[in-house]
Nucleic acid binder design. Structure first.
Lengths: 236, 236
DNA sequence: CACTGTTGCGGTCATATTGGTCACGACCGG
DNA sequence: CCGGTCGTGACCAATATGACCGCAACAGTG
């Protein structure tokens, strides 16, 4: 395992699901499957054992429905034991009360079963970004630094397509952007797709706002700087 | 108090700060100041008392530096006692470890002192939105519902920027300055970011005026003295 | 040595330039 | 006829440019 990899404990009573989670983990860089626990008590034992062995767990993928304890109880006991390990809840339970409790228990992500690999990967990549944000900072942190770190836990799930954007055009813009190696400006999108600059911008801005695109100004020429956009590739 | 208002407990040892927080609360609709505690133990007592009295606290504004317990300890004990009250941390401490611990302790927002009313209001409004998101849902919750609730908690609503300054450029300048170990001149910022000297100065001056940068003239060379700027690292 | 004019460089300001932004009308499908 | 999508043109905002100003170092003069 590479230094700085995130050590993950899978807590899941169904063997098939546990294996699936571990397999998913293997497909993501930066994560290491550090073990599996089938119930709450063994999870707690594994966590304390790993901590005292000098190889602490960084992240727990915690199923909420366990044979002995509820996942939230496991989380609370972890906190009571002084463990600051981060937790991603994985559950088929959709009750409001559980979600509220999860927030209070310091759960960083909430995954609802059944989920696709894409959803799983998205949540974990977000968590990895969150860690990177905090880790790259010096000891001193500003309000904006903290805000940004919290924001990277934010989900860039596609908001329902706002008014004024059509399915077809959006698809065309995305397809075009994926083909580009260098960032493109709205003018280039306008030319290549044969749509107006305003329309091109509408779609580019939407994609940038939802986190699918990187946006940065292009300097050097007189006049207001032109934004250029690049498809954000989630590194796997 | 209107039904559905958010009952807030202020935990702060300095009386002046506690009063200020309560006064800030009064200016926000939807929040009710439900009491003040000067130390960790009285905070815990107040919380349990309020819960058993049938008027539970919904939110705690928790200072991290208290005379008896650390704010994080208070949070952990609250969790251990089964309280799912939400917590906003208010602190002058900027240590990375505290931020990480705060996340694990289920702290929903992190406010760094000193803060303006605008920042304070922003964080609380975000929290109110978060509650509204979850409260309006039915019992059954979808992945996107949860994602949106989390997003409203963690998406920073950007603060107003003076005219003439763009978000992208400001971010680029700040990022560049944080990487520097030695003070930099406007010419160096110009070269490295590919922007004009005038533009570089506009952003540097703004940051210096708002207190984010140290500014001092650089003598020794012929010509008018050149200002050099350094990111202000608060040692604490 | 003191004073003074010169020189050189960065700060300052006005202006031109360009893309972003907004409001509205055209067009199209139901 | 109506809701939704797109283009158009006027206006707004952020930038580069270049002329001008201010300040410190420097060199020459008394």
């Amino acid at each position: 395992m590479a230094d700085g990899d995130i050590r993950v404990l899978v807590v899941e009573d169904e063997a098939i699901a546990a294996e699936a989670h571990a397999a998913y983990l293997g497909r993501l860089t930066g994560f290491v499957h550090a073990g599996t626990a089938g119930n709450g008590h063994s999870a707690l034992r594994a966590l304390t054992a790993a901590a005292s062995a000098g190889t602490p767990i960084d992240l727990v993928l915690m199923d909420m429905t366990l044979p002995d304890l509820h996942g939230l109880d496991v989380s609370r006991r972890m906190r009571a034991a002084g463990l600051t390990t981060d937790i991603i809840a994985i559950t088929a339970v959709r009750e409001l009360q559980i979600v509220r409790g999860a927030v209070a228990a310091g759960i960083v992500q909430y995954l609802i079963k059944p989920f696709t690999y894409a959803t799983f990967a998205q949540k974990l990549v977000q968590y990895r970004e969150f860690r990177k944000q905090l880790g790259s900072q010096s000891v001193v942190t500003s309000q904006t630094d903290v805000d940004h770190a919290f924001a990277s836990l934010r989900t860039p799930t596609e908001l329902p397509r706002p008014k004024g954007l059509s399915e077809g055009t959006l698809g065309a813009v995305i397809e075009f952007l994926k083909l580009q190696t260098a960032p493109v400006s709205s003018s280039e999108v306008m030319e290549q797709l044969g749509i107006s600059r305003v329309t091109a911008r509408r779609y580019l801005e939407h994609l940038a706002d939802t986190g699918s695109l990187d946006r940065s100004p292009r300097y050097g020429t007189p006049g207001r700087p032109e934004n250029e956009y690049a498809w954000k590739r989630l590194t796997q």
